[in-house]
Computed example of a mutant assay.
Amino acid sequence: MSAAGAGSDEVPRVGVVGLGLIGGSALLGLRAAGLPVRGCDRGEAARAWCEGLGVPCDPSPEDAARAVDVLLVCVPPHATAAVAAVALAADPDVVVVDVASVKAPVVDELRTRAPADAGRFLPAHPLAGAESSGHEAAREDLLRGATWAVCPPGDDPDGAVDTAAVLLRVAPVLDALDARLLVCTPEEHDRALAATSHAPHVVAGTVAEVAGDPPTGGPVAAVLSGGALRDVTRVAAAPVGLWAEILRANADRTADALEAVADRLRATAEALRSGDHDAVVAGWERGTAAHDRLASARWGTAAWEPLALDDGWDGLLGLGAAGVVVRGLREDGRGGIAGERWATAG
């Protein structure tokens, strides 16, 4: 198979393995963007759903890999490396991109399973989701404009040696979803997601339990609950099987984040019991300031500015470490990378 390369006018053929919420949404979004796409799932219902859309659906990752240029692997974290490895082995040109919400364990396993092919594995993770799961919950717009964490290829997870050629091959696929890319190492990703996603999911369930059960809560509390409780506990409804797996894969970093939350809550409880009103106010103000910084970086008004890099992964990782998001990456004709960078205005 001749793969569509960076700078090529050929539209890449894309496969999606695992037609759950994320995979199904990727398939719908790519189809809407006009890319030639095909699905792959071992479940009969998911395959029937895909074929009912008029989209081909392969029975195995190997079959899908042989038919496409870029393969998105959208299966649970514990299965990601195994599926990626068999897909890479099936075709010498295909590039495999995963979407697992933990990166370091997946990369480590992939390097063990497929050391010779790891340079064609691009670890990634779209920051999108919902409390529901399965292809029935898939939406064409779920990944539209989402931020994606993207890491250097599996054979060079720190970006020390490889050029960004594999990323540039995948870029047209991500562009079709209007993706915003934050480039980071697997370790940086897992540490960040522990604080921004994995620990918050645990906290959400804990707050729901405190409000819903005696002695702190119960039927009266449930009826008197309002928007604050609803918003804080929304993700407590996420599927336990997937989230137990995610927490197990990122256990130490999530435990660190939970201990940091517990320390701050304990300090506030002690200040309330001792009547230290100034400490309570100071803690609240620190939280407000942190909220504002997070909101500005993630959802603030921004403008896209031209981007030109000569140093591949090193330059992209430097931007990522500063929280700078990029898009529209392509070869600049002189061995560098062109595109756009997100400049937050506040």
Results as ranks from 00 to 15, higher is better:
311 D>G: 00
326 V>F: 07
305 E>F: 12
231 D>P: 07
264 R>Q: 12
28 L>S: 07
151 C>N: 04
171 A>R: 07
4 A>Q: 01
107 V>H: 09
137 A>W: 10
88 L>P: 06
26 A>M: 09
329 L>K: 04
271 A>M: 11
2 S>W: 12
232 V>F: 08
299 W>C: 15
227 G>T: 13
344 T>Y: 01
36 P>F: 07
234 R>C: 02
264 R>P: 11
36 P>S: 05
113 R>V: 11
81 A>F: 06
340 E>V: 03
27 L>V: 11
103 K>T: 01
31 R>K: 07
214 P>Q: 03
189 H>S: 05
271 A>H: 09
117 D>T: 05
303 A>Q: 12
320 G>F: 02
107 V>F: 09
56 P>A: 11
207 V>R: 03
346 G>V: 10
53 L>C: 03
36 P>G: 13
342 W>N: 00
92 P>R: 09
233 T>D: 06
240 V>D: 13
213 D>I: 07
37 V>Q: 01
154 G>Y: 12
300 G>M: 01
259 E>I: 14
254 T>I: 05
193 L>W: 10
248 R>I: 15
175 D>G: 13
69 D>S: 08
40 C>I: 13
215 P>M: 09
260 A>E: 15
95 V>Y: 02
19 L>F: 02
280 V>G: 08
318 G>M: 05
98 D>F: 12
232 V>R: 10
308 A>G: 10
72 L>S: 00
312 G>E: 13
175 D>Y: 08
213 D>H: 15
221 A>Y: 07
13 R>D: 07
25 S>Q: 05
200 P>W: 09
88 L>R: 03
320 G>S: 01
41 D>I: 13
190 D>T: 04
213 D>V: 02
192 A>S: 07
44 E>I: 00
90 A>I: 08
208 A>I: 05
109 E>H: 09
61 P>D: 06
289 A>W: 12
72 L>G: 02
287 G>H: 00
202 V>C: 12
333 G>F: 02
95 V>R: 02
295 A>R: 14
117 D>H: 10
249 A>L: 15
45 A>H: 11
273 R>G: 11
149 A>V: 03
146 A>L: 11
95 V>T: 08
100 A>F: 09
157 P>S: 08
115 P>Y: 08
295 A>P: 02
70 V>C: 02
